[in-house]
């Protein structure tokens, strides 16, 4: 597993050590160990049910682990929150209704040990123009922005976001990530859960792939792609296809033959294609294309499931 290197002298912002959490017979989080370091922007990537929300709940002290330890800035999650070091925005986090946006943001500021001015928080979250609106009269995207304002009401060192752009349109999403980058540029650690793979690819400098409560991959988006077989090679063959010989091609990570068409995923497409000609076959309609992170992600999870079954 590739781990994004961090200086050994830096104390981790978040440390999970063999953490497990079970609901009934479902292991939501299964022996998870990870460390986040200051200044990183980390995406927690996984399909629904991968354990992302449970991982964030454990990190924020909303749930207690069955086994293992969770530490945030070297203390318990709750202590870190009380010290004002963590700002968080949850999908499941509701808002107080029948109050205005400004009143709610002022409340969040007054509860934070190191608060910003409410006017600044409203402006930064892009909700200054709806400050006087009642919270229960907001659209889904606006409510998300209010949640973001609550998460950034003070000078926190770690910002945790669970599917933050749910309900936002494309332009709102872009504006949101621009705001988020500012936070990261100020040296904050940002951890966000998402199943929008393009978000992880575009925003995060480290991607954690979570599947069935376990960490499948940990690296940069580029490394994740490489791990899954970075390129896709496809071609048609005439006559009998010697599948065994094809399967022995160097750097091949997956192969699929349907009719005349062979599709290969390769960690090094150049070497694979070179060896392909060495087999003495004449591939037609040869195409070599890069895998998006999404396909990389599917490849990693499929490989994992194949290993388990």
């Amino acid at each position: 597993m590739t781990t994004t290197a961090a200086p050994a002298t830096t104390a981790p912002v978040v440390g999970f050590d063999q953490v497990s959490k079970t609901y009934g017979s479902t292991r939501a989080v299964d022996g998870l160990s990870l460390r986040l370091y200051p200044g990183q922007t980390v995406a927690l990537l996984g399909p629904n049910g991968a354990g992302k929300s449970t991982t964030l709940d454990l990190l924020l002290g909303l749930k207690n682990a069955d086994s293992g330890t969770v530490s945030v800035f070297g203390t318990s999650p709750r202590e870190a929150i009380v010290a004002g070091r963590v700002g968080a925005m949850l999908q499941s986090g509701g808002l107080m209704d029948e109050v205005t946006v400004a009143e709610l943001v002022r409340l969040a500021c007054s509860l934070h040990p190191k608060p910003y001015r409410a006017a600044d928080v409203l402006a930064r979250a892009g909700i200054a123009q709806i400050a006087d609106r009642k919270v229960n009269k907001l659209s889904g995207g606006q409510a998300q922005r209010v949640r973001f304002a609550l998460a950034t009401a003070g000078d926190s060192d770690l910002i945790v976001l669970d599917e933050p752009t749910t309900g936002m349109d494309v332009s709102a999403r872009q504006a949101f990530w621009a705001t988020m980058r500012e936070q990261a540029d100020q040296g904050r650690t940002v951890l966000f859960a998402t199943h929008y793979l393009e978000e992880a690819d575009a925003i995060a400098d480290r991607v954690l792939v979570l599947h069935r409560g376990r960490l499948l991959a940990d690296g940069t988006a580029a490394e994740i792609k490489a791990k899954a077989g970075a390129r896709r090679v496809s071609f048609d063959l005439e006559g009998d296809i010697d599948e065994a010989a094809l399967r022995d091609l160097p750097f091949l990570t997956a192969m699929d033959v349907s009719g005349r068409t062979v599709r290969i995923q390769s960690a090094d497409a150049d070497a694979t294609v070179h060896a392909l000609y060495g087999l003495g076959v004449y591939p037609r309609n040869l195409e070599v294309a890069g895998l998006g992170l999404e396909q990389a992600f599917v490849a990693i999870t499929e490989a994992e499931e194949a290993k388990q079954s």
Binding site: V82, L90, G93, G94, M96, D97
Partner: peptide
């Protein structure tokens, strides 16, 4: 209602 709507959870993310 606030338990169900998640406001109680949101408050638990504050030092309150």
């Amino acid at each position: 209602k606030e338990r169900e709507g998640g406001w109680v959870r949101q408050l638990r993310l504050t030092p309150l």
